[in-house]
């Protein structure tokens, strides 16, 4: 009887040992780099304008949705990415509405692994766009970028435009 019990114990332990093997997980592949997530062809969905002085001083009128003031939703913005590096950029619209100071050129970022700033370059001109949010499933693949306008004389930040782009 004792031998039978002992046999059952050994059999159970044997099953437990052989049954507890690590599962073979599938390869998850390379992580999607944020810089790649911001590339491609984008369409402007929303434009918000903020008075930075009013925000800082707590004035009652701070921001305004200006999307429908002008045909902003016709504006497209494309960021090309090739050979692991930023390439050319272009903005387009049918109504001559300029989003930045120039319509095309090349682009770069401050940190290729985790960019927070996009630089648009056209010959000797450049524009700095601050990334507000990388596109992902939570924000419905929305690219949010901000442009700050400063007083030419004092360098004081006066106006911020927040642009929301979708594919």
């Amino acid at each position: 009887m004792k031998a039978k019990k002992l046999f059952l114990y050994i059999l159970t332990i044997g099953f437990l040992i052989t049954g507890c093997r690590p599962d073979a997980f599938k390869e998850i592949g390379d992580a999607v780099k944020p810089v790649e997530s911001i590339t491609g062809q984008w369409k402007l969905r929303k434009v918000t304008q903020s008075d930075i002085n009013a925000v800082e001083k707590g004035f009652p009128y701070k921001t305004l949705d200006i999307t429908d003031v002008l045909p902003y939703q016709d504006v497209t913005f494309s960021l090309a990415f090739s050979n692991g590096a930023p390439g050319s950029f272009a903005t387009g619209n049918a109504s001559g509405l300029d989003l930045f100071d120039f319509e095309n050129g090349t682009w770069g970022v401050d940190d290729i692994n985790a960019p927070s700033v996009i630089y648009l370059i056209n010959n000797n001109d450049s524009a700095t766009l601050t990334i507000g949010s990388y596109p992902n499933s939570v924000n419905h693949n929305t690219l949010i970028i901000s442009v700050i306008k400063k007083d030419e004389e004092t360098n004081k930040e006066l106006i911020r435009y927040d642009y929301e782009f979708v594919h």
Partner: peptide
């Protein structure tokens, strides 16, 4: 009044 309080010629003015 004007919004934003200080604007340039290339900005939306309300």
């Amino acid at each position: 009044r004007v919004f934003p309080a200080k604007v340039g010629y290339n900005d939306v003015v309300s």
